[in-house]
Lab assay of single mutants.
Amino acid sequence: MTEYKLVVVGAGGVGKSALTIQLIQNHFVDEYDPTIEDSYRKQVVIDGETCLLDILDTAGQEEYSAMRDQYMRTGEGFLCVFAINNTKSFEDIHHYREQIKRVKDSEDVPMVLVGNKCDLPSRTVDTKQAQDLARSYGIPFIETSAKTRQGVDDAFYTLVREIRKHKEKMSKDGKKKKKKSKTKCVIM
């Protein structure tokens, strides 16, 4: 069974824990209790493949930012979460993405942009803004509501699919490099 290491990042209060708990335990946590770091595991079937999701729910508070490099190193894919009623959390996505790329030393890291709290009427981040940002990053965008469960499975499952595509691409690139290195030079 394939294991996928997913990391949920975003500013404090955007609903990272609520999304994760909704996926794992099928219930909505409405009281806000700032996370330092929590880890969850769940076995699911995605596109006919049974897999184990190892999900790291991270601290959004700035005082825990020193811990970010460590979990970013171990993560295979990242859910970059903002709240649709919090423009600052949307603007912060850029910083999370840049930090992930720096730590992973790669421009090509599996990510999904997630606009959470889409059940709320007080939207300050337009869907088109988020779609445009995701398009500019070359990553999928999904709106979710941890409260109603809308888009929750889709967000995590899409990230797994992005990781699969990335692994497939990397193995193809690896095979191309191996083929090239088999060419021999004969000096007579």
Rank of each mutant, 00 (worst) to 15 (best):
S145G: 11
H166Q: 09
Y137N: 08
Q129R: 11
E162C: 02
Y157A: 14
Y157T: 14
K178N: 12
M188Q: 15
C185G: 15
S145H: 13
D132N: 07
G138I: 00
K177C: 12
A134W: 07
L133T: 07
Y137H: 05
D154A: 10
T158Q: 12
F141V: 09
C185I: 02
K167T: 06
R164I: 15
G174L: 13
D153I: 12
Q129Y: 03
F141S: 02
D132I: 03
A130I: 15
V160P: 00
T183H: 12
G151L: 07
K172E: 14
D132C: 04
L133M: 09
L159V: 04
R164G: 12
S181E: 14
F156L: 06
A155S: 04
F156H: 01
H166K: 08
M188L: 08
A155H: 01
D132Y: 02
F156P: 00
G174Y: 00
K169I: 10
G174P: 11
V152C: 09
T158S: 11
D132A: 06
R149W: 14
K165I: 07
K128I: 10
V152T: 09
K128D: 07
A155W: 01
K176P: 14
D173V: 02
R135D: 14
T144P: 02
V160K: 04
Q150F: 07
D154N: 10
S136K: 14
I187E: 15
L133Q: 06
T183V: 01
R135A: 13
G174F: 00
D126H: 05
A155N: 00
S145A: 14
Y157C: 13
M170C: 11
T158I: 02
K128L: 09
A155L: 07
E162K: 03
G138D: 07
K172L: 08
D153F: 09
A130T: 08
D126Y: 14
L133E: 06
L133C: 05
A155Q: 01
T183A: 15
A130H: 07
R161S: 12
T127W: 08
L133P: 02
M170G: 12
M188C: 11
Q129T: 09
D132K: 05
G174R: 06
Y157Q: 13
Y157W: 07
R135K: 13
R149C: 15
K167I: 02
M188T: 12
S181Y: 02
A146F: 00
K178S: 14
A130G: 06
D154W: 03
K178W: 05
G151S: 11
S145L: 02
T144E: 01
D153G: 10
S136N: 09
C185D: 15
K180W: 07
K172D: 12
E168A: 07
D126I: 12
K175V: 03
F156G: 00
A130Q: 04
K177D: 14
V186E: 15
D173C: 01
L159D: 00
Q131W: 04
F141N: 03
K128S: 11
Y137S: 09
K180V: 12
A155C: 08
I139S: 03
Y137T: 07
S145V: 07
R149K: 09
E162M: 07
M170V: 08
K178L: 08
L159M: 03
K177P: 14
T144G: 03
T158L: 09
K128E: 07
K165Q: 06
S181R: 11
K176S: 12
Q150M: 11
A155Y: 00
D173T: 08
Q131F: 04
D153R: 09
K172V: 06
E162A: 04
L159P: 00
V125A: 03
G174S: 10
K167L: 01
Q150W: 06
L133H: 05
L159G: 00
V160G: 03
K178A: 13
G151A: 06
D153Q: 12
T127F: 15
D153K: 10
D173G: 10
R164L: 12
T127K: 05
D126V: 10
Y157D: 12
E143D: 12
Y157I: 15
D132L: 03
V125Y: 13
I139R: 01
L159S: 00
S145M: 03
K172M: 13
K169C: 09
Q131V: 08
D126F: 15
A130W: 15
A155R: 00
G174W: 00
S136I: 05
R161Y: 05
T158H: 14
Q129K: 10
K176A: 13
I139C: 07
K128Y: 07
K182L: 04
R164D: 15
S136H: 11
I139G: 02
D153M: 13
E168H: 11
A130N: 06
T183L: 00
R135S: 09
S136Q: 12
K165M: 03
G151K: 03
Y137A: 11
K176G: 13
Q129C: 14
L159I: 06
K169N: 12
K167C: 03
T127N: 13
K128C: 09
H166I: 08
E168S: 11
D132E: 11
Q129V: 10
Y137R: 05
Q131D: 07
G138C: 01
S145T: 15
D153H: 10
D173L: 08
P140G: 01
R164H: 14
V152F: 13
I142K: 02
K180R: 05
Y157V: 15
A130F: 15
T148A: 05
G138T: 01
A130L: 13
K165C: 04
Q150S: 11
D132H: 03
L159K: 00
Q131P: 05
D153T: 12
F156R: 00
Y137D: 05
M188Y: 04
Q131N: 08
Q131I: 05
Q150P: 14
I139T: 03
R149V: 10
K167V: 02
H166T: 11
M188N: 15
K178I: 10
I163R: 00
I142D: 01
D154P: 04
K167G: 03
A134L: 04
M188V: 05
V160F: 08
M170D: 11
V160I: 10
E162W: 01
L159T: 00
G138W: 00
L133A: 07
R149D: 10
K175P: 11
F156C: 02
L133I: 09
G151R: 06
M170E: 10
T127Y: 15
Q129P: 09
T158D: 04
A155D: 00
K175S: 12
L159N: 00
K165Y: 03
A155I: 11
Q150R: 09
D153A: 13
K128F: 11
Q131C: 06
H166A: 08
I139K: 01
T158F: 05
T158Y: 11
Y157S: 14
